[in-house]
């Protein structure tokens, strides 16, 4: 038997009870207040969307559920406003989807291709190409909005999906992400693949793309939300109401609210919810991918 007895048992001093409890309570209190600050407006918009217009006009946003949710939903999805009767919620939803998905896919495909070329090839003008591409990170579309508009006009791409999506892709964010990611892929993988007889295309398709799955998913979420939420560019490039996206349509909604006898607040609120729901859902459901993709840009 192991004996390692203390000759004297030391008296144990009981420490004072820590202030931990209070700390925990204040921490939660701050977080709850913060969460309310962030979510209350959205909740209000949602509950109010279930009320009849007359009531909203009188009392504004309210925290109670009415019975008009489906009516307002029908109005929002199928009713049109404006001059051409082309901008029902359904049409705008379709356009938003096309913009969000088209933008995300375009960015990812072009970004992966360019990043692959920059990272995995011995290219004489690699440094030059790198700078040409990465300078675009510096200047957001907003500062060159007018000349970009003129280019689209000159190419006859007004009110087209191409004109809507392609100029937004002209920045290197995805290329930058994928370049960072490819550089973090172990060097030996490409060497092993070369010895295994894989050429550049095979390596890309068999190894690199499957390896990037998480990264692609994260990118897709970020880019989809970014594309979906675009406002200034769609505002300028789409004049045809049948091309409006939900986010672009918001402006018209707020303008229509002015000066009408009975403004359709319920419909407007529901359109706002429809404009918010898909990106929120994708961000919340794919939280871990999204957070990873977002914070990896920090490095």
């Amino acid at each position: 038997m192991m004996t390692d007895t203390l000759t004297e048992t030391p008296t144990l001093v009981q420490p004072k009870a820590p202030l931990l409890r209070w700390r925990v309570i204040t921490d939660h209190a701050v977080l709850i207040v913060g969460a309310l600050f962030m979510l209350m407006p959205l909740v209000l918009v949602f509950t109010t969307a279930s009320l009849p217009d007359a009531e909203i006009v009188k009392h504004g946003l309210q925290l109670r559920i009415g019975d008009q949710l489906d009516d307002n939903f029908t109005k929002a999805m199928f009713e049109t406003s404006g001059f051409t009767d082309a901008n029902s919620g359904l049409v705008m939803l379709k356009n938003s989807m096309i913009l969000g998905v088209g933008f995300a896919v375009g960015k990812i495909v072009l970004g992966m291709m360019a990043a692959y070329a920059l990272v995995y090839f011995r290219l004489r003008f690699a440094l030059f190409a790198f700078w040409v591409i990465f300078t675009t990170l510096l200047l957001p579309l907003e500062v060159r909005i007018l000349p970009s508009y003129e280019v689209i006009q000159g190419l006859g791409l007004m009110n087209t999906y191409t004109g809507l999506i392609v100029p937004l892709i002209a920045s290197a964010t995805a290329t930058f992400f994928f370049r960072q990611f490819f550089r973090s892929v172990p060097e030996e993988l490409v060497e092993a693949a070369r010895i295994d007889g894989a050429g550049p295309l095979k390596f890309f398709i068999d190894i690199l793309v499957p390896l990037s799955r998480t990264m692609i998913a994260a990118m897709f979420i970020i880019m989809f939300v970014y594309g979906w939420n675009q406002y200034l560019w769609p505002t300028m490039i789409t004049t045809d109401e049948g091309m409006f996206t939900l986010v672009r349509g918001i402006k018209q909604i707020t303008q229509v609210l002015e000066g009408t006898n009975l403004p359709e607040y319920g419909r407007a609120n529901l359109l706002a919810i429809i404009a918010v729901l898909p990106p929120v859902a994708i961000v919340v459901f794919f939280q871990s991918w999204f957070v990873k993709g977002l914070t990896d840009s920090d490095k």
């Binding site: 995995y120 190409a129 040409v132 392609v166 060097e187 060497e191």
Partner: peptide, 29 residues
């Protein structure tokens, strides 16, 4: 660049062309 990069001369150019074209038309210009 990876140590053991591919030496294929035309593939990287082909991969870069779409991005560079879009950037040229809708960014630099």
């Amino acid at each position: 660049m990876k140590r053991a990069g591919f030496a294929n001369p035309w593939l990287p150019i082909l991969l870069l062309v779409p991005q560079l074209t879009i950037i040229a038309v809708f960014f630099y210009w």
